[in-house]
Amino acid sequence: MRNTARWAATIGLTAAAVCGPLAGAAPAAPGNAPASLYAPSALVLTVAHGESAALAAPERAVTLVCAPAPSGTHPAAGPACAELRAAQGDFDALASDDDMLCTREYDPVVVTVDGVWRGERVSYERTYSNECVKSSLGASVFAF
């Protein structure tokens, strides 16, 4: 049941993230090219406490739209999009804060990402040993 609720929330947030920026856009007149073309980048990010997303209900969820401009419900959309561009959309390659000291406490936190990055489907899940370790990687992306 939890997995069904997670997918329903993910689909709803993805639809809002992808369609929201397009709501005000008027279709191009026949024979005219649109002003700009871009590959869509719209993501739904979730955070939950637990060892896997299948076993833990999301505690927080945000949308992050990076193209054509940073937007969404993410509190730091601009810096998060910049970090993802620098990592070329590879969530495992997000920069870490090597100066951050974390305890060895085991209180697993799982993050998920579902959506589209530069026109390609993305589905990502990673479990961190605790909140501090999660926060040390991708400072802006998973800071919500």
Score class of each variant (00 low, 15 high):
N3Y: 06
P70E: 10
F142P: 07
R118V: 00
V113C: 11
F91I: 12
A54F: 09
L45R: 07
G31L: 10
L22Q: 06
G119R: 03
L45H: 13
R126K: 07
V18W: 02
Y124R: 05
V113M: 07
G119H: 05
Y124K: 06
A80M: 04
T63C: 05
V133T: 07
L45T: 15
D97W: 05
A5T: 14
E83Q: 08
L45M: 12
D92C: 00
V113H: 04
Q88Y: 02
G78S: 10
S136G: 14
S123H: 10
E120M: 06
S129L: 05
Y124F: 15
E131Y: 09
A139N: 15
A53L: 06
P68Q: 13
A15Q: 07
A57F: 14
D99T: 15
N32S: 02
V111H: 04
G20C: 13
L22N: 00
S36H: 01
T10I: 09
K134V: 15
S71Q: 10
A82S: 08
E131I: 13
T73Y: 01
V44H: 02
A35Q: 05
V141I: 13
F142I: 11
A95C: 00
L55C: 08
A93I: 10
V47G: 10
D92V: 00
M1Q: 06
D90T: 08
G89W: 04
A15M: 06
K134C: 15
A76I: 05
L137Y: 03
R60L: 14
E125C: 13
V62F: 06
A25V: 15
Y128M: 03
C19M: 13
L137Q: 12
S36M: 06
V47K: 11
A57D: 14
P34Y: 02
A87Y: 10
G72S: 11
D97Y: 10
C132Y: 07
Y106R: 12
A80Y: 03
D99L: 11
W7S: 14
A28E: 06
P70Y: 04
D99C: 03
P58L: 05
P34K: 01
A86K: 04
V18P: 00
P30T: 07
V141E: 04
S96M: 01
S71T: 15
L84I: 08
P68N: 14
L137K: 14
V111W: 02
N32R: 02
T103M: 04
V111N: 01
V122L: 09
Y106C: 01
C102D: 08
G115E: 01
A23M: 15
A39W: 00
Y106S: 12
A77Q: 03
G31Q: 10
S123Q: 08
D114M: 03
L43S: 12
V44R: 06
Q88F: 04
L13Y: 05
V116Y: 04
A57W: 14
L37F: 01
P40V: 11
S41C: 12
E51I: 08
V109T: 12
T46P: 11
G31R: 06
G72A: 11
A80H: 07
F91Y: 12
V18F: 07
A29H: 00
K134R: 15
D107L: 11
Y106E: 13
S129D: 08
E83I: 03
S136V: 08
V18K: 02
G115H: 01
A76E: 13
A8F: 01
D92G: 10
E125H: 10
D99W: 06
G138R: 05
A25D: 13
Y38G: 10
L43K: 00
A42Y: 03
S136K: 07
